[in-house]
């Protein structure tokens, strides 16, 4: 076992998959010699060459669209969108094409691609280098959406995504890249898609989160533990398909739930979790399902004070937990 940063785990899993399967190719902007703007693909070009690590023109729709075609003809493309904020030109290819290929062909064509995209705020990226874009895509049947929060999960989930027969949007929180370290076994382990993880056991309140917020929720749980509030924290890890069993069984035990997400509150992914719990576990609830989420301004502003104002943090989560505990 080695301790690795989040991005080292991703890089290692990518390299391992490329060694394991000659059909795996990486393409995107600056992924070659430079190794990606975050260095997620650093070293791949030297090891696998320009035929498998392709520096593309600035054409996000092309990056995804050609990946779809390449997947149909036998490759396992892992396209990188340099920042999730810039995925919008590829929206049509992802939603109208990749996600529907299997359904519209009655199961005769598949689309095994894994689109990697760094997302999230707290890195002074302002409006166009900070966004959370998961809600646009979790709405779409046919896509899988994965958001790891630890180096261990990042490597294990990325392997599962690349080996999956369907298109996966793999969202990596930028703030985690170098700030989080963890044990990453040397082996070829996988973490299954569609399985959440209880990262802290508790009895009174369930906190559900993913990405950077999975860490903040753990910190918040620790903060309120001193007040005698016992919080169970769930890292959903795969947003779609969602692991309903883990979510519902926890909420049915605790009777109270806080859903945490960094995206704008209105219509965010956490709203769907809240709706499902209210439909399927209403009789077990002892209080309203609270959402702790970003404010409803168009995106994260730049100035330090403004960004801090935008970002959900352990204190704001703890405040919601205390409010709910007192309900």
């Amino acid at each position: 076992m080695a301790v690795q940063t989040f991005i080292e785990a991703i890089r290692g899993a990518l390299a391992g998959e490329m060694r394991r399967d000659p059909c795996v190719v990486v393409l995107g902007e600056d992924v070659g010699i430079k190794g990606g703007v975050f260095l997620a693909t650093d070293g791949l070009f030297a090891e696998f060459g320009p035929g498998r690590v392709i520096d593309t023109p600035l054409s996000e729709s092309m990056i995804v669209g050609t990946s779809i075609g390449a997947a149909v003809n036998g490759l396992r493309p892992v396209p990188e969108i340099q920042f999730a904020d810039f995925i919008m030109p590829a929206f049509n290819q992802i939603v109208s094409e990749a996600a529907r290929m299997r359904y519209r062909s009655n199961g005769t064509f598949g689309c095994p691609i894994t689109i990697r995209a760094p997302f999230g705020g707290g890195v002074h990226g302002a409006l166009y280098h900070s966004q959370s874009i998961e809600a646009y895509f979790t709405h779409v049947p046919g896509l899988k959406v994965v958001v790891p929060s630890t180096p261990y999960d990042a490597a294990g989930l990325l392997r599962s995504a690349i080996r999956d027969p369907d298109p996966v949007l793999f969202l990596e929180h930028k703030k985690l890249y170098r700030s989080v370290r963890g044990e990453v076994p040397a082996g070829d382990y996988t973490v299954p898609l569609g399985k959440a993880q209880v990262t802290r056991s508790g009895t009174q309140i369930t906190a559900i989160a993913y990405g950077l917020m999975a860490h903040h929720a753990l910190e918040a749980a620790e903060l309120v533990a001193g007040d005698g509030i016992s919080v169970e924290v769930i890292d959903v890890r795969t947003l779609r398909p969602l692991d309903l069993d883990t979510v519902l069984s926890s909420v049915r035990r605790t009777g109270k739930c806080v859903v945490v997400y960094e995206d704008n509150k209105f219509g965010g992914y956490g709203a769907e979790i809240s709706a499902i719990i209210s439909e399927q576990a209403f009789d077990y609830l002892d209080g309203p399902i609270l959402r702790v989420a970003g404010p409803d301004v168009p995106a994260v502003p730049y100035a330090h004070a403004l960004e801090d104002w935008f970002m959900v943090n352990p204190d704001s989560i703890a405040a919601a937990i205390r409010q709910l505990a007192a309900y």
Partner: peptide, 13 residues
């Protein structure tokens, strides 16, 4: 774009 990707895979493989 799918045709371009198919052609890319054809050459790769």
């Amino acid at each position: 774009l799918h045709a371009v990707g198919i052609a890319f895979a054809a050459r790769s493989r």
